[in-house]
Simulated assay, not measured.
Amino acid sequence: MVNFNGTLYDASSNLLSIENRGYAYGDALFETLKVVHGKVLFWEDHYFRLMASMRIMRMEIPMNFTMEFLENEILKTIEANQLSKASARVRINVHRVEGGKYSPVSNDIEYNIVSERLDADFYSLNEASYTVELFKDFYVAPGLLSTLKSNNKSINVLGSIFAKENDFDNCLLLNTEKTVVEALNGNLFLVKDRVIKTPPLSEGCMKGIMRKQLMELVEKLEGYTLEEAAISPFELQKADELFITNVITGIQPITKYRKKEFTTEVSKLLLDKLNTKIRLS
């Protein structure tokens, strides 16, 4: 079952037309959430990111789009798919209503919510081999739009195809200044000597929800220093550890980049603290 503007429909229903602005112009935003036994993880952060993104995109936010309203719509969708007592990946899609070309006839919006089952309730560390490479065919242009979860994800799609064709598990994206921004599906953290580093938003990286959670944990981590700074490609092979973060996987350690192999010590430490934080929240 899918939730379209508050009404539940069978997943096979034809709800979107070819004139949908998200399809026609990428005039849409989305949030990917993890819901565990009816609890939306980090919901406040997701909600405020979505509202801020809608304002940046000049979308009209409906009066009823409160935290409580959208959370209830998420849980209604979860229940309709018999996932209330399981873990689920939920995606909220928001698009401007049909009409117009580049210039819309209205800034009003519609939304839909879809869900799928996840295997694990809490985050676990994947210690299997995980190899990455730089994707250098196209570059991220730093700016406010690059921090949004919009439907304009061509570079992520092309990078994913490149990774698949070349047997990499993931790729790291570069910005127009040729510094490392993020992975295809999450933010990047680099550990070197007791410093844990991640690119600032000004470099063009996604304003990740898990990024925010990890930064808060690192700031309280005894013996380590958090640094928001640009990462050059040359730093990657000098790092002790690299890992990728997103709300579905949690923390994904990178085990190899070119000839360099990495440890997972900090990843394990932070993952344990992350799960503890979730249990106590």
Rank of each mutant, 00 (worst) to 15 (best):
V2Q: 10
F4D: 02
N5P: 05
G6F: 00
T7G: 02
Y9H: 15
Y9F: 15
S13E: 12
N14I: 12
E19H: 14
N20Y: 02
L29M: 07
H37W: 00
V40R: 04
L41N: 06
F42D: 03
D45N: 12
H46V: 08
L50H: 06
R58C: 01
E60V: 05
P62A: 07
N64T: 09
M67D: 08
E68S: 15
L70W: 03
E71S: 14
L75A: 03
L75T: 07
K76H: 02
K76V: 08
T77P: 11
I78Y: 06
N81W: 05
N81C: 11
Q82D: 14
K85M: 09
A88V: 12
R91M: 01
H95N: 12
E98K: 02
Y102E: 08
Y102G: 12
Y102M: 13
S103I: 14
S106C: 05
E116M: 13
D119E: 14
F122N: 13
F122I: 08
E127P: 03
A128F: 00
S129T: 11
T131D: 09
K136T: 15
V140C: 07
P142G: 10
P142N: 11
S146H: 06
N152W: 05
S160N: 13
I161M: 07
D169C: 09
N170W: 00
C171W: 03
L173H: 04
L173D: 09
T176Y: 00
V180I: 06
V191S: 10
D193V: 04
V195E: 09
P199H: 02
S202E: 11
M210R: 01
E216T: 14
E216Y: 02
E216C: 04
E222G: 07
Y224C: 12
T225V: 14
L226V: 11
E227K: 15
E228F: 05
A229F: 00
S232M: 05
S232C: 04
L236H: 05
Q237Y: 03
Q237V: 13
Q237I: 09
E241W: 08
F243S: 04
I248L: 15
T249H: 07
G250H: 07
V266E: 00
K268W: 00
I278L: 10
I278K: 02
I278Q: 01
I278M: 03
R279Y: 06
L280A: 09
S281V: 04
S281F: 00
